[in-house]
């Protein structure tokens, strides 16, 4: 624990320096502060200390996983705590090639599904959200209600009918059942999210565009979309993470080991009745977390970019 607490601030400084967004935000942050008083510096230090402590607690389990992935398989559950007596990289090398294909193969499969899903969600959900948030049309209330209903039914009971549907189209063991629903805005979560964000955008902006003679496609593309970048970034991040981690869909629809995505491939290390390759499982879990983590680090810049544009008002 102690070592981890000491190393955190260093990493923190580095990332703060590298992160352009923080610089861009400077003017806003300094709002109201004339000079850095000693009391303020102490307060900021306190804040950092609390954040680091809380953060350390938050990621203790993950640290344990990282440490465990560097231990020989048979010692993982016999050596408690976070002390490493030796550094074992073999979990990474053997885990990478333990399955039918190198682990990168499954990551590519996942990436295909993820990219398709992100594009699908961004396009289809934002279109539907624009209609719900800004347009008047017949049966609007009813359709909005139905949209919410679709996320209220536990998914276990629609698996079988849905499987029948896709197997009849001949889509089992392809990526289509995982991507096409996203292209058709079946994730009501994101539609609703975007509706809420669009409703937060001042209406005068699209009124002004309308007076200038812009039609709905133009208002949507030129006014609304640029203003809802934070919502789009949120959608991208969540779609990435949820699709990347989606186990059940991939389990049901992908039968050929060639088609496995990361979560399904990870389960191949698990054998609940015999010996699970914990070392490989942890090592590859960490490898598979890396892209998600990077997307998150990168994606949150766009959460910030939003203010530059929403500052218009």
């Amino acid at each position: 624990m102690t070592t981890n607490l000491q190393t955190l601030p260093a990493a923190d400084n580095k990332s703060a320096g590298a992160g352009k967004p923080t610089n861009r935000r400077k003017p806003r942050e300094s709002r109201g502060t004339l000079a850095f008083s000693r009391a303020q510096r102490a307060r900021s230090l306190m804040k950092h200390a609390i954040l680091i402590l809380a953060g350390g607690l938050m990621i203790y389990p993950l640290l344990w996983m990282v440490i465990s992935s560097l231990r020989p398989n048979e010692l993982i559950f016999r050596e408690p705590g976070l002390w490493l007596n030796s550094l074992e990289m073999s979990n990474y090398t053997s885990g990478w090639s333990a399955l039918t294909h190198p682990f990168g193969h499954y990551m590519i499969n996942s990436a295909i599904v993820v990219i398709g899903s992100i594009l699908g969600n961004l396009i289809s959900c934002s279109m539907a959200a624009y209609a719900f948030a800004r347009l008047q049309f017949t049966a609007k209330k009813l359709l909005f209600g139905i949209m919410l209903l679709t996320i209220m039914l536990p998914f276990h009971v629609v698996i079988v009918p849905q499987y029948i549907l896709f197997s009849q189209i001949g889509w089992v063991n392809t990526f289509w059942p995982l991507i096409v629903p996203k292209l058709l805005a079946t994730e009501a979560f994101f539609v609703f999210l975007m509706v809420q964000f669009i409703r937060g955008i001042p209406r005068e902006l699209d009124e002004a565009a309308r007076i200038d003679g812009a039609g709905h496609p133009r208002i949507f593309l030129r006014v609304i979309l640029p203003l809802m970048v934070p919502a789009l970034a949120t959608t991208t991040i969540f779609t990435f993470i949820w699709t990347w981690n989606d186990f059940f869909g991939a389990l049901i629809y992908l039968t050929d080991p060639d088609m496995f995505t990361v979560p399904v491939a990870l389960r191949a290390f698990v054998d609940s009745q015999s010996a699970t390759s914990w070392g490989s499982l942890f090592a590859m879990s960490i490898v598979s977390l890396l892209p998600v983590f990077l997307v998150f680090l990168f994606g949150q810049r766009f959460l910030i970019k939003g203010i530059a544009t929403t500052g218009i008002k």
Binding site: F247, F248, L251, T255, D256, P257, V264, R267, A268, D271
Partner: peptide, 12 residues
């Protein structure tokens, strides 16, 4: 071949 771990196997 089609394979998976115990718990997912039966659902599938």
């Amino acid at each position: 071949p089609e394979f998976g771990d115990w718990s997912g196997y039966w659902d599938k």
